[in-house]
Design a binder for these strands. Structure first.
Lengths: 339, 339
DNA sequence: ATTGACAATCAAAACGTTTTGGTTTAAGAT
DNA sequence: ATCTTAAACCAAAACGTTTTGATTGTCAAT
């Protein structure tokens, strides 16, 4: 059936030891033997059995990514780009990417435990961090390699890559205040997510710096989906004193808010301005194009994967903790000209 | 370090054979021994080493999904939903999902070969089929399990799930013709993709049934991205005799076409109508909401994964080849009232 | 007392590969 | 001729688990 190292040994007249050492370029195997073994292996289509290798070498060369959601929410381009970034970098190193989705009937921590205790992955990438994140607590407690896209509350003594959401949202608020907006609403993510805290903090601090208090009625809790953004924007626009600006904490919710505004006859960018956060690939080409904060999700995927693989290979990281500077992208949804 | 079966054997005073058979519920192990072994294993946090199991059992319980693209294009909700559908179903069976990214260039087959020859997966899910698809040719030739989302040219003697793109596009054309449109443009996918052929066939046959020929100037080749749809719609709208309707073969390109039309001052749904295909989660909430053909990508992901796992477990499939009936979803982008 | 059946357990082999440490041969130095 | 060294190769053990087939002890029937 499948070609094994024994088949190559038989065909070459060498021992399985020599075949193995020839294929792995040991210096105590002659050049002639190496060429012979490698030729025969290629002819017969021999590929090492990975399970046998992993068992013997006690290495998996596999990255674990457990997506903290399931179902159609994975249509959110955030996840697609992240998987792309992680997957492409893992592929460069010859590592595998093991993806799991989180079903509601399955205990999240059980999945982590099973893969860790079964030594199925060399490390995990953690995404969409919560303020108190038991995933991170567990991995620290077991001293198992991981890298985080995001941060948590408390001691940040683990490697992470994050974008400065405080500064990003502050940049948006400052831009809107400069445009003359004083009644600014905010649609935030679910509060257990750590980035919700940072982004709201950025909004509130920037408002305070301009002597503006946020009217509590202008603070809505969204669920990161377009549908959620649509619903919250409808509620905001129905207020006795509706906002002149809606600051959504991610692009998806901003798209939903734009739809809600447009359906009520508002011209977005003139009658009301709406902003997002992420700069998903779609933001530039939507109508109107979306003002947002650029977050290089694909590149972050590359970075966290690179860091994790280096960690699992015993290499030191040049930077253990990276906080990316946000970049404000001004487009039509806040009134800028098409560009 | 990690708890092995030897540790449990030592702690229980039983042989490793008995421990294994107790954990795997063999009927020749006493109930008392089973309880003892299972208790000790739980206390010590024992999880079997998966590589050892896979080596011994010659089973991987892993599904291979090699996404035929790289980089930010994975932000396309098609891929996110597919991964969700496959991942959720794999999780239900306790199977792993191994995701790789690889553009369809000359290295593509090397990844398939490596995973197949290394017995790293039990089977593959193939997506975004081409008219001549060397992936499918290779898997058939090697008699390796796979299930396809889509079809190819020629003999369809493999298990697949697809949606009837001919009928779906025909339904759109008929709807537009009924609305009075006679100058209908079409933005197709790259022609090597098999579904491009089916969808264009649906367009052309439906037009012919109404005595309409497609003006070659109204046939544009897109690349499935929003940006591509934008560019093609711009070209179409710049024609001396622009179309009154643009039929895009996927939602992303339709969104791009909508943006292009709106930027030129057209009211989509009144001045021009635009349709898509997929019914991505965003189609309903965009502005205007998009008329499209529903394609249950998440459910298809479930189905192909289910079929593949059954195949790898030696079960027969109730249906080896599923052609889903399309469902036309009429929304505002073709002039329907908001609903 | 002997034999047969059954419950329960266990040693050994197996899976495919890598690594450790041993063996053999040939060449060069003494 | 003898000893040493280096090149090249190989047998055995190892990795952790599962499966096969053997063994042991007990009980019931003859």
């Amino acid at each position: 059936m499948a070609v094994t190292i024994k088949d190559i040994a038989k065909a070459t007249g060498k021992s399985i030891t020599t075949v193995s050492r020839a294929l792995n370029d040991y210096d105590d195997v002659s050049h002639e033997t190496k060429l012979l073994v490698q030729r025969v292996a290629a002819e017969k289509g021999y590929t090492p059995n990975l399970w046998a290798q992993r068992l013997q070498k006690q290495r998996t060369e596999t990255i674990g990514l457990i997506l903290p959601t399931r179902g159609p929410r994975l249509g959110d381009p955030f996840f697609g780009q992240l998987i792309a970034g992680v997957g492409d970098k893992a592929g460069e190193y010859g590592y595998d990417l093991l993806v799991s989705t989180q079903a509601p009937d399955r205990d999240e921590m059980a999945i982590y435990k099973k893969k860790l205790q079964g030594r199925q992955v060399d490390g995990f990438i953690i995404v969409r961090t919560r303020r108190q994140d038991r995933r991170i607590d567990y991995l620290r407690q077991t001293d198992f390699p991981f890298v985080v896209f995001g941060r948590t509350e408390g001691e940040l003594d683990y490697p992470y890559v994050d974008e400065d959401g405080v500064a990003g949202m502050a940049a948006i608020i400052e831009h809107l205040v400069r445009l003359g907006h004083r009644r600014i609403a905010c649609i935030t993510p679910p509060e257990e997510l750590m980035f919700a805290t940072y982004r709201l903090q950025g909004v509130q601090e920037a408002l305070a710096q301009h002597g503006l208090d946020m009217d509590p009625a202008l603070l809505r809790r969204g669920d990161l989906t377009q549908r959620g953004g649509f619903a919250e924007a409808q509620a905001l626009l129905a207020l006795p004193q509706p906002p002149t600006a809606i600051v959504a904490c991610n692009d998806l919710m901003a798209f939903g808010a734009i739809s809600a505004a447009q359906q009520q006859g508002f011209v977005v960018g003139r009658d009301i301005v709406i902003t997002g956060f992420d700069d998903t690939p779609w933001a530039e080409h939507s109508n109107p194009s979306l003002t947002t904060v650029h977050q290089p999700i694909y590149e972050i995927g590359n970075m966290v994967c690179d860091m994790l693989i280096r960690l699992t290979q015993g290499q030191s990281l040049e930077q253990r903790q990276v906080l990316l500077k946000p970049r404000l992208i001004v487009r039509q949804s806040c009134g800028a000209d098409a560009s």
